[in-house]
């Protein structure tokens, strides 16, 4: 029997977000590897399949997460190679700000195993619903917080800026479960190059289970240093400027409009022989 891999997302809120196809894959798998966000969700998953293997054990404070992720991929792939129908279930969307599913699928395909991904409802989806933000209104940029700090990015302050994994801000060791005030101060200083000190930002957490409230703490940018940041906190920075019209481009478009209008009004010529 040939093995296969499907990576599925279970969504953010237990029981509310999973798609019928993801649920069916979980129920029909020989083995389900799991990375859930809370114990209730892990227990829920264990109720759907008799062989659920939690990947939590690979994490260790001080251990480089790149090694952790490779070990997770190896564990998943070894069962695919054993000919098993494997499902890897991740909270949220398996491919949004998450590398394990992408790596595992890529590796499985390289080894000629059928591998695919089923989307799930991510923190991003919940954020738009809970905070009433439409990413299409003025645009929206998403970055992993440390990456945002390590590299020079072009920040558009007229769009929303969403920073993921903010609790790990500035961790170069890849081994920390959270970083402290000094690291956050560096992030705040970077943001202050673009935003005013009194700019209001939001600490957001979608609910993981039905009774849990969502978190929408509005704080000043400078208060971020002392804020209570959890692993599941996402930082939302609303725009602080208005969109600037691109006059040069608008002039070009106006010229085209004019030309099209002229062509439309030109009398049609009939060829008389």
């Amino acid at each position: 029997m040939s093995g296969s891999l499907v990576c599925v997302g279970t969504g953010m809120t237990l029981g509310a977000h999973i798609s019928p196809i993801s649920q069916s894959h979980i129920e029909q798998a020989d083995i389900v590897f799991s990375l859930m966000a809370n114990g209730f969700a892990q227990k829920w998953l264990e109720g759907m399949n008799a062989d659920v293997r939690c990947l939590q054990g690979f994490y260790q404070e001080g251990k480089n997460r790149n090694i952790t992720y490779n070990e997770m991929v190896e564990a998943i792939l070894s069962e695919v190679c054993n000919g098993k129908k494997v499902v890897a279930a991740f909270y949220g969307h398996p491919g949004v700000f998450a590398c394990v599913a992408h790596r595992a699928i890529k590796k499985a395909k390289l080894d000629d195993f059928p591998a695919s991904m089923e989307p799930g409802i991510s923190a991003e989806d919940c954020l738009y619903a809970d905070l009433g933000i439409d990413p299409g209104k003025t645009g929206c940029m998403h970055y992993e917080t440390s990456q945002f700090m390590f590299y020079k990015r072009n920040i558009d302050t007229s769009a929303h800026l969403i920073l993921w994994q903010v609790a790990l801000a500035g961790d170069k060791s890849l081994g920390k479960f959270s970083t402290g005030k000094a690291y956050r101060q560096v992030l705040v200083d970077l943001l202050l190059e673009h935003y005013p000190r009194d700019h209001e930002v939001i600490l957001y957490q979608a609910k993981g289970i039905a009774i849990e409230p969502m978190r929408e703490d509005k704080i000043l940018l400078t208060e971020l240093v002392d804020a209570d940041l959890l692993m599941q906190t996402t930082l939302v920075i609303p725009p602080c400027s208005v969109m600037q019209a691109n006059e040069e481009l608008l002039a070009k478009l106006a010229k085209i409009d004019k030309q099209e209008e002229r062509n439309k009004n030109r009398p049609a010529l009939t060829l008389v022989l």
């Binding site: 209730f40 892990q42 440390s146 961790d171 479960f177």
Partner: peptide
């Protein structure tokens, strides 16, 4: 959590590298 017997412990779950 306290009232639910045998609840698996979830300590960590980042699954992304900045680099």
């Amino acid at each position: 959590k306290v009232a639910t017997y045998n609840l698996p412990e979830i300590r960590c779950y980042p699954i992304l590298l900045p680099d």
